[in-house]
């Protein structure tokens, strides 16, 4: 379980790590929009380069970043296969029964795969370089305008940070429970699908029991300290933008501009 890297913070001292979480979140949104604006291969190339440069600057080993793809690789493959087999426009290269492979289909599927890949990699780059605490602080700050419509921004932020905070704890818990059941002779990697699913019960039930217990304890601890989400709570660490963030905004804006120009063919200049 320890090897699941999805969304885990990877400590390092880099330009990306030091950016304000709001900058990273906004840049992430801009990047996702840009990925969906892509049409030509050149624009995909631009997205790819932007991503690769960000990863290199973040000083996170490529291996750790790619690990995050492993979790969604299956979905990507399924999407590609379905797209290839059922896309029917364009020059037919191969066909059998209702399945056809067309040139257009191949192109479409490869673009789809790139899109998904870019989405996963970019969002996991944010979580790899930002601590959960910082991430929720950033999100809370970005959502502040919603307070105008009586949206409980702070409550949502605290719920999120509690949820994020407990992910590693539960991973540890699962690890422990698995060991205890393995010691009693349970095996989780043999047998068919149903047998394997059944083998998970001795892990899931203790996990849920402990999740409820922890939730109870936490709620009691919050109550005991008279916690409530009063407005205008002060922060221990205030978020501040620095020169670094300005650099990141300019670069992101430039990237978005390039993508838009590629889409419109440089406003008819090319």
């Amino acid at each position: 379980m320890r090897d699941v890297a999805f969304g885990q913070f990877y400590p390092a001292d880099s330009f990306v790590h030091k950016l304000d979480p709001r900058t990273k979140l906004l840049a992430g949104i801009v990047y996702i929009v840009a990925v969906f604006l892509c049409t030509s291969y050149y624009s995909y190339l631009a997205c790819f380069l932007f991503l690769v440069i960000s990863i290199i600057v973040s000083r996170i080993p490529i291996r750790s970043v790619l690990k995050t793809v492993k979790a969604v690789l299956f979905i990507i493959i399924i999407t590609v296969v379905i797209n290839i087999l059922f896309y029917s426009d364009g020059k037919v290269l191969w066909s059998w029964w209702k399945l056809t492979i067309t040139e257009q289909g191949l192109i479409f599927a490869s673009k789809m795969a790139m899109r998904l890949l870019f989405l996963v990699l970019s969002t996991s780059l944010i979580t790899l370089t930002t601590t959960p605490m910082n991430l929720t602080d950033g999100l809370e700050s970005l959502l502040t305008p919603l307070k105008w419509i009586k949206f409980p921004v702070h409550d949502v932020a605290i719920i999120m940070s509690i949820a994020l905070r407990f992910i590693p704890s539960f991973m540890e818990e699962i690890d422990k429970i698995m060991m205890a059941q393995k010691a009693r002779g349970a095996s989780f990697d043999t047998g068919g699908l149903i047998k394997r699913a059944k083998a998970l019960l001795p892990i899931l039930i203790p996990l849920f029991v402990s999740a409820f217990r922890r939730a109870d304890e936490l709620a009691m601890a919050l109550d005991a300290r008279c916690y409530n989400a009063t407005p205008n709570r002060t922060k221990m660490k205030k978020l501040t933008f620095t020169g670094r963030d300005v650099v990141a905004w300019v670069l992101t804006a430039a990237f978005l501009a390039i993508i838009i120009m590629l889409r419109t063919g440089f406003f008819g200049l090319l």
């Binding site: 429970i177 059941q181 009693r184 019960l201 001795p202 203790p206 402990s210």
Partner: peptide, 10 residues
């Protein structure tokens, strides 16, 4: 294990 009661499930 430590706190073995947390492994009870049945």
């Amino acid at each position: 294990f430590q706190y073995p009661e947390y492994q009870l499930f049945a």
